[in-house]
Amino acid sequence: MLDKLFTGARTCSLWLTWLGGALIVLSAFLVTLEVFLRKLFNVSLGGADEISGYAFGVATALALSFALFERAHIRVDALLGAIPKALHPYINLLGLLLLTGFALVIVVMVWGMVGDTLDNGSRSITPMRVPLAIPQIPWLLGWVFFVFSGVLIALVAIRQHFRGDEAGVQNLIGVKSLDEQIEDETV
């Protein structure tokens, strides 16, 4: 069951990343259209910058999980070479749990913020007067899925460790090797 959940979450993270990418592309088209209309016809659509800001925030949150599954989050691993290799899985798991814990703090704070936004009917202080819950809810969902993914990956890594599959743990939560990084860039 854990494997099915893991595979499903990984696939979902890919689709969420594509959705976030589509938001970025659409906002780029919107901003480009805005620039051309201003330059050629001295007309503004208004709000292109606001919408693109919301799109960027939502797209980023939606892509966090995929980066976690791909081991693409930035790490400071300068000391990892000085630590015995037998401790690497524990250090990597600790790093994953700390990252997930930090994301959980963000989720709790954002949950309260979205609740306040809904209770107060808050809107942006721009001419568009966007109900702030519209960008905040998908942003929150991206963070919630990130926390879920972090916990799921940690559980799978712990299971791999207890099964004695240290290579599996490395492939799941370890720092990518130089060869893996090169392969990612050439594909």
Rank of each mutant, 00 (worst) to 15 (best):
L64K: 01
A154Y: 04
T32Y: 06
T60R: 06
L5Q: 10
F29M: 13
R71P: 10
L104Y: 02
R129F: 00
L33W: 05
P127T: 01
G150Y: 05
R163T: 06
S27M: 08
L62I: 13
L68R: 04
N42M: 06
S122R: 11
V31M: 08
A61F: 01
F41Q: 09
A72I: 04
G53Y: 00
T117L: 04
V108Q: 12
L23A: 07
E180A: 08
L94N: 10
D119R: 06
L172V: 06
L140V: 06
F69N: 04
A55S: 14
S122Y: 07
E70I: 01
G112N: 14
E180M: 10
L80C: 03
L99N: 10
L118Q: 06
R75P: 03
D119P: 00
R129I: 00
V187K: 15
L99V: 13
F69H: 15
W139R: 07
F102I: 09
V114L: 14
G21P: 02
M128R: 11
F41G: 08
G95R: 00
T126W: 00
E34Y: 01
A59S: 15
L64V: 12
E50N: 04
L178T: 12
L141K: 03
G8N: 11
I158H: 04
W18R: 14
I158L: 14
A133N: 04
L14N: 08
T60D: 05
E70H: 12
L23G: 06
A72P: 05
L26K: 00
A86G: 12
V110F: 06
G142D: 08
C12N: 06
V151G: 08
L87S: 08
V169A: 03
R71A: 08
I182K: 11
G57K: 01
G47P: 02
V76A: 07
L93K: 11
T100N: 07
I134G: 03
S52I: 00
H161R: 08
S65A: 15
A82F: 13
G150W: 02
L93E: 05
P138H: 03
A157Q: 13
L87Y: 10
V175M: 10
I125E: 13
L87K: 09
D77G: 04
R10T: 07
L96C: 13
E166Q: 14
